[in-house]
């Protein structure tokens, strides 16, 4: 019974990581890749680790409980650190003027990006 829960959690986490990797490989530009990596990482890691925690707690003891608390600390830390790292990466890319991909046309009402063909290629990386 518990094994079914473990398998469900770990397989769903694995599927999310699969989608993250596919997004990382096929999205058109850096900013959209950040979307795929930054979101898929957190929940898939949490699901995989939750499955491992339940599997590990099956033979219960004090030491196992302590290890489970440490594992939950890792989950907590990933939830705190992953958005921060994502933010640092996308800010660095924005500052370095990484070329972007968009379908929007330039407009007068403060739209930050010009059209899809006019990339900001004033700096090659």
């Amino acid at each position: 019974m518990l094994n079914a829960v473990v398998i469900f959690l770990m397989v769903s986490g694995f599927m999310l990581f699969f989608a993250t990797t596919v997004g990382l490989l096929r999205f058109p530009d850096f900013y959209t890749r950040v979307h795929a990596a930054g979101k898929g990482d957190t929940l898939s890691t949490a699901l995989l680790l939750a499955g491992l925690i339940i599997y590990y707690l099956q033979d219960f003891s004090g030491e196992a409980l302590l290890t489970a608390v440490k594992l939950s600390l890792i989950v907590f830390f990933v939830f705190l650190a992953s958005p921060t790292a994502t933010h640092a990466i996308i800010d660095a890319g924005y500052e370095a003027k990484v070329p972007y991909w968009t379908k929007r046309k330039p407009s007068a009402d403060g739209e930050p990006y010009p059209g899809p063909e006019r990339r900001r290629e004033d700096r090659q990386i």
Partner: peptide, 23 residues
């Protein structure tokens, strides 16, 4: 919801038609 959204977007065949990146 966010993870399902981004996973659906990454796996959908017409990802580039659905996407509309902007700031």
């Amino acid at each position: 919801i966010a993870n399902i959204h981004i996973a659906g977007l990454a796996l959908s065949p017409q990802a580039r038609e659905i996407m509309d990146p902007h700031v």
